[in-house]
Design a protein around this nucleic acid. Structure first.
Lengths: 348, 348
DNA sequence: CTGAAAGCGCTAACAC
DNA sequence: GTGTTAGCGCTTTCAG
């Protein structure tokens, strides 16, 4: 491929001038610039971004590490962040850690080698991007969706605790008193927050602790949602509502209840958390707690850009923790429990 | 950050030796290597990938350009390709052209500047990645899902024509004779293929041409699916089945029929194309033609890796065109048209 | 406004 | 085995 030198030779100008002409430096005679541009075009010149990045110590690329690239919850982030960063001239290195701490660490290392200007990270361990902070504390990191103990990183998260509480309140309002929660891996901050919200709300409403089991699982995927729902159906027959705290889990739950011929919401109420919009056309449309993903993603990108473009304040400013409230979208998968078809006083 | 030079000074060794030690070159005494590794660790050394890439003229990164990062159809590709490439040590630059030719061209240019070793491209123009071929024909390109006229590129696509024909056959088997097709932008190869398959099949089965309208739209999104469905309901009351040829369009169609209180499949049959698995829990579960996305994505990654790792044959070998067959998944959104509840001879 | 020259961090070729 | 050196292509002083 043609290099700057080629363009310089072609135009008879010096390297420096050509460089300046092409990168919009002001101190270039308009005609010179024109000539350079023409020569560049004729030669099919394409600036070597690697060389530029090396020289300027700035790669104009940022990394994005997500747990899952097929989950709406995260692809929204990928999409929004990509677009916003692109508008500012940044490229996006996207990768997926599958919630594996080994993979996560390797990806972070790889991003550091690429000398990215910043990182968006959905941590899957309590340490998060500590590795990055240690290697070069100047590289800004914004945590998305989850929090870790890494110091000096911003985070953009949902108000999981409050969301879980709202779910419980909705169910209690309908008359439920035995609610099961399907949770994810305990090491994720989101799981912890949601479980806390659930427990607190249950206590506040005086629900029987033993009637409200929490099932921790290995992941947040549909398979676990299905398995957990089956378990609840088998082992906790008294439960009248299930709260499924994962973005894909609800799909598994819908499958499980359909297989078992359990009618929702007649026999059982179902509430999802963060489920995709598609669940509006599910059978039945699913009541769920949703987070403002677009806003959160936008904020993530802005925060990162800010840190990248104003490294000065980076050192000084306190890390931001932006916690976004979601809202409960009541659909058709929740209804009063069967015992409540009659006034409360009447027993079963 | 620490550089090779720092490690060299620390160990008292030469630059070359340190470089070799760290990058696994055989000609290094084991003990030397150990010492180097230790020093590197102590200094928190992280190899500068930009410098390496510049020097070796190989960036170990590849680009992926998709029309939409929130659509399951494409995120599957992103996910699979990312994983497979990562396993081979490549990073993935992901971006989205939104089916805009300007954006697409700019993204391709940006990837060339990044000196990616290869590109996966879902073209949104007939020219596709011609730009890349012109700039540097050695950079391998694999087209995904769609085809362009760019020369010397491999492509991995679905058998859209056949799929559309299968959809028609299914509906005809049920007794439908007036089938509307909701299509996408005419400039996409997929649209053309599907429409051709649709028309051919209609002709083959002797369906009335005027009873089988094809609606071309500006995109393949849910909004267009909804609008088109409404249009059909309004202007083509004779139609008994709608074939929605887009991965998100079916969601819009479901919304439209629900709003209009049209009962599916009693009043109207609905068939989707490439819709997400989630549609299995839709109301009603949607009959649709699906492509083996995982296989297709895997093939895409393999093809690209092959081209990258064996540049020799690149020049020689003919471009591959891998066309994958899908299959029709019959669910509950299709049924015989109302007139057919009685034997055929009976009129309306 | 333009040219010359230094050097970003690394690898690979060549000497020893 | 190891050290030295020349550059990969670019930006950015510093002179003029």
């Amino acid at each position: 491929m043609a290099t700057l030198k080629d363009v310089a030779q072609r135009t008879g100008l010096g390297l420096g001038t050509v460089s300046r002409a092409l990168s919009g430096h002001p101190n270039v005679r308009p005609e010179t610039r024109r000539k350079v541009q023409e020569a560049a075009r004729e030669l099919g010149y394409s600036s070597n971004g690697l060389a530029r990045a090396l020289r300027r110590n700035r790669s104009y690329s940022v990394g994005l590490i997500l747990p899952d690239l097929e989950n709406e919850f995260y692809t929204t982030a990928a999409s929004v962040v990509q677009r916003l960063l692109r508008d500012e001239g940044y490229r996006l290195l996207v990768s997926c850690n599958n919630n594996s701490s080994e993979v996560d660490a390797e990806l972070l290392r790889s991003l550091m080698e690429s000398r990215v200007d910043g990182i968006v990270h959905a941590p899957c361990t309590p340490e998060g991007a500590d590795l990055v902070r240690a290697a070069d504390p100047r590289v800004p990191v914004v945590e998305y969706a989850r929090r870790s103990s890494a110091r000096g990183v911003d985070s953009v998260i949902g108000d999981d605790e409050r969301g879980a509480a709202e779910v419980v309140r909705h169910l209690v309002d309908l008359g439920h008193r035995r609610i099961a929660m399907v949770a994810g891996p305990p090491e994720l901050s989101t799981t912890a927050d949601r479980v806390r919200g659930f427990h607190d709300a249950c206590a506040r409403f005086g629900l029987p602790k033993r009637g409200c089991p929490v099932l921790h699982g290995p992941s947040y995927d549909a398979r676990w949602g299905e398995a957990a729902t089956r378990q609840i159906l088998d082992r906790h027959p008294g439960v009248t509502a299930i709260f499924i705290s994962g973005s894909r889990g609800a799909l598994g739950a819908l499958k499980a209840v359909r297989d078992r011929h359990v009618s929702v919401p007649r026999d059982l109420s179902l509430v999802g958390f963060l489920g995709p919009e598609l669940l509006d056309v599910a059978n039945p449309p699913l009541t769920r707690y949703v987070l403002p993903l677009e806003e959160m993603s936008t904020m993530t990108a802005r925060l990162l850009l800010d840190r990248i473009q104003h490294p000065r304040e980076q050192a000084a400013a306190e890390p931001n923790v932006m916690r976004f409230e979601g809202k409960l979208m009541v659909r058709e998968s929740t209804a009063p429990p069967r015992e409540h078809e009659l006034p409360r006083s009447g027993g079963s």
